[in-house]
Amino acid sequence: MKRFEVVTRIGAPPAAVFDLSLDVDLHTASMAGSGERIVGGVRAGRMVLGDTVTWQARHFGVRWRMTSRITAYERPGHFVDEQVTGPFARWHHAHWFEPDGRGGTVMRDVVEFAAPLGWLGAGVEAVALDRYMRGLIAARNVHVRECAERGD
């Protein structure tokens, strides 16, 4: 299993960044490069505790589907999304939003995941998947920051 953190500083208050981070329309726009789209569950707007969404996207040339659920929700400081079904043996993504003392937010993503297929999946994690997932989260966070700082 892999674990990584991505920290992003955003010039907008935690409540605004929290809300944007739960917006499925923003998420879809941030993942346009992989053709990510919603195929089930919450189809527009902001998710709340217990909501699920099913995403379909193309990564590594393969089409994937993943259903995730919001399993923790403490506005404006923290929420968690976890895979219900999908390509990972485990996917747990904790989102933290802390005031930076200047009116902005320190957004911290803590991701724990495990690839399927035992030792073969562990090899893929080590060689490519860890770096790829960090890049996806970082790219998404750039989009969140841009939207939050524009006041979207």
Rank of each mutant, 00 (worst) to 15 (best):
K2V: 15
F4H: 01
F4W: 14
E5G: 02
V7D: 05
R9W: 08
G11Y: 14
A15T: 12
A15Y: 09
A16K: 13
A16Y: 02
D19V: 06
L20A: 11
S21M: 10
L22A: 15
D23P: 07
D25R: 04
T28D: 10
S30G: 11
S30Y: 01
A32K: 02
G33W: 03
V42I: 11
R43P: 10
R43W: 13
R43N: 08
G45Y: 15
R46M: 07
G50N: 02
G50H: 08
T52P: 13
Q56Y: 03
Q56E: 15
R58Q: 03
H59C: 08
W64M: 00
T67W: 15
R69G: 14
A72Q: 12
Y73M: 00
E74I: 08
E74Y: 08
G77E: 07
G77V: 06
H78P: 01
F79E: 13
V80L: 06
D81S: 05
D81T: 13
Q83P: 07
W96A: 11
F97K: 00
P99W: 12
P99H: 07
D100G: 10
D100L: 09
G101P: 12
G104P: 02
T105V: 03
T105C: 10
T105M: 02
D109F: 00
D109W: 05
D109P: 02
V110K: 04
V111M: 02
A115K: 05
A115G: 11
G118K: 05
G118F: 12
A122D: 14
A122S: 12
L129V: 15
D130G: 05
G135E: 00
L136P: 02
I137V: 14
A138D: 00
A139F: 07
R140Y: 11
N141F: 12
R145C: 13
A148G: 04
G151N: 09
